[in-house]
Design a protein around this nucleic acid. Structure first.
Lengths: 106, 106
DNA sequence: ACCATGTATAAGTGTAGGCTTATGCATAGT
DNA sequence: ACTATGCATAAGCCTACACTTATACATGGT
C-alpha cells in the first residue's frame, strides 16, 4: 500500500515543527538561520529537523559548516494519499445529497 | 477559519484517534460499538471522541441511550486547505480534493 | 596550531496527554 | 420504583516528548 500517514501527521502536529516546515517551504535555509528566526535553542531546531527528516518531509545539503535544509515535497504524499482515501466516502455523501435534492424537487 | 490545520493535525496524530476516525468513516457507530471494537476502555473512547469533536472531525446524534458518532467530512477542510498552500508541489491531487470539498459546502 | 563558528548528540527536566478506575447522570426495561 | 445499560466526566498515574544545558565533532579563518 502506501507509507504510514501517521508518521507525517505526527511530525506536523507539533507547532514548532510545522512552523519550521512552513518556513522551509518558502526557501531552503541553514540551521543557524532557523535558530535565529525561532525562539528555541539550536539543539531544539536540530531535533525538529531530525524528526522532519525521518518523516521524509525535509532533506539536507551540506555546504562547508552550514547544513541547508529544504522541504522534500514527496514527503507529503502519504498524507495526501490518506486524505484521498476518503474521496469515495465524500463522493457517497455528495451522491446522497444529490439524491435528497432530487427528492425535494418532486 | 473556525479551526486551523494544527488542531486537525494534532487530533489525527494519535493512532487510536485516527483508527476511530477511520472506523467512523466507514459507518456511523455508537460509543459502545467502538468500545467493543477497540482495545481501550469506554472512557478512553469517549475522550478521543470529544477530541475529534472539538476538532470538528466528528458529530454526534443521540438516540435513546445510544450516542451515534459519524465523521464530519468538512472537518478535514482546514487540513486540505493547509496542503493546498503547497499546490505547486501537489497541484493536481490537491485541487481534486479541494473541488470535492467545495461541492460539499453547497 | 589555534580559535571561532555551525551542527549534532547526550543527558536531564518538566509538562502535556493518553490511559486507567471510580463515579454520576440519563434513559430503557421490568 | 428498581435495576441495568450507555455515556461522560473526574482524578490520578505514567509514559512520551519538547525543551534545556553541556559537550563533541567538523570546518573555516587567521
Amino acid at each position: 500500500m502506501h507509507t504510514d500517514a501517521g508518521i507525517v501527521l505526527r511530525a506536523l502536529a507539533d507547532p514548532s515543527r510545522r512552523a519550521i516546515f512552513e518556513r522551509l517551504a518558502r526557501a531552503e535555509a541553514p540551521v543557524k538561520d532557523l535558530t535565529a528566526q525561532f525562539d528555541i535553542s539550536q539543539p531544539a531546531v536540530s531535533q525538529h529537523l531530525a524528526a522532519l527528516r525521518s518523516a521524509g518531509l525535509v532533506s539536507e545539503r551540506r555546504e562547508g559548516r552550514l547544513v541547508y535544509y529544504r522541504v522534500a515535497p514527496q514527503g507529503l504524499r502519504p498524507l495526501v494519499d490518506w486524505l484521498a482515501h476518503y474521496r469515495s466516502f465524500w463522493s457517497e455523501r455528495v451522491e446522497r445529497l444529490d439524491a435528497l435534492l432530487e427528492e425535494l424537487d418532486e
